[in-house]
Design a protein around this nucleic acid. Sequence first.
DNA 1: GTGGACAATAGTGTTGACGATCTGCCCCGT
DNA 2: ACGGGGCAGATCGTCAACACTATTGTCCAC
Lengths: 205, 205
Amino acid sequence: MTDLLRDDILGGVFPPGERLIELQLTERYGVGRAAIRAALVELDAEGLVQREANRGATVRRITVAEAVEITQARAALEGLIARLAAERASDGDRKALRALVDEMAAAVAGEDTMAYSKLNRRLHRSLCTIARHRVADEMVANLRNRAAHHQFRLALVPGRAGESLGQHRAIVEAVVAGDGPAAEAAMRDHLASVIEVLRHWEAFD
Amino acid sequence: MTDLLRDDILGGVFPPGERLIELQLTERYGVGRAAIRAALVELDAEGLVQREANRGATVRRITVAEAVEITQARAALEGLIARLAAERASDGDRKALRALVDEMAAAVAGEDTMAYSKLNRRLHRSLCTIARHRVADEMVANLRNRAAHHQFRLALVPGRAGESLGQHRAIVEAVVAGDGPAAEAAMRDHLASVIEVLRHWEAFD
DNA sequence: GTGGACAATAGTGTTGACGATCTGCCCCGT
DNA sequence: ACGGGGCAGATCGTCAACACTATTGTCCAC
């Protein structure tokens, strides 16, 4: 149940700020109110929804300032992940990572931002898997979810994919080379540039 | 409700592995099962309890390997926090931090491990407050809770407090000097040494 | 003595109803 | 016209009862 609701929130079915009324959700998903409540409590703990006593739950609105914080935390954790990935990647992993970057380059060349965005996510997730660090992996996945909307906007910035591609290539090269510290630095650089763009928006909304 | 149960788990009322039976908890806290269930769902999301379908909840057991992972994640996030704290500390903050280190030194001199452990926690929490980074703050607090038992064991290692004191002093000095990178490095060193001790245990249990 | 079916038990999962609380609106007095 | 009190609707929080599942212990055949 929780997964369904989470996917619908992330998929934009329930936009930020939308009220999540238990009774309505019971109809939509065909389950009892107890199940809905449990899901809401869980998603509240995840930071995806906000619950106020006797006032119900809403889809959490993430301000740009908060997205910056989230990305900073991601930089710290994904830096660790990149370092570990560099230390622990198998030959198969290396090959797969290189193939992914090539695909990304193709997406940039074809100006297919949608495909690039998907590959982007896949690369970050691959690194999480390779690093075999459950705790950081879970936390990063959560952080990514929380900032999902802003991340989406980011992909639409013209020229962004090209810039991002170079950074991703740097990360993968360091991981493939087995250079932990370099991988960590590259990952931090990458997310610092994401923060740069976010900060640029902060002035507007 | 959730807070009560969490405190009892952290306080050792319910040791790791203990079954948390809903009906018993309703008696203990004098609330309905619904409230207990909500609390269990929340603590499950926090990683403090484990729930299996139709089999109930237990206090989560944290292996030493997991404690290492948790501490690694803390190193990454508290590194960020230390850096921000160095950049954002006010004069009052600096004074308070120095006073805290002095108190810690006194506790070490007086071989009062209990007091030292408390001051230790207070120092880390102070840095979290000074850094004004909600996202990282929350995550670190959660990570600390999850590894609380191991953290407690750590304090009892003979000579540990002395070693730890020097590291804490280095952190505070960097923060007071406003040197972000140095603060981050010092914090990472500190937690790396914690990991060292944990790894040493890993062989035994 | 051992393995398998079966009943008893403990505990969770679900449902429906009821009371508490908040929100928006209308009415009324000024 | 305007502001405060109170009413009604909507929604959450809680509770008790029932249904379901997993586990444990027992009995019997072999």
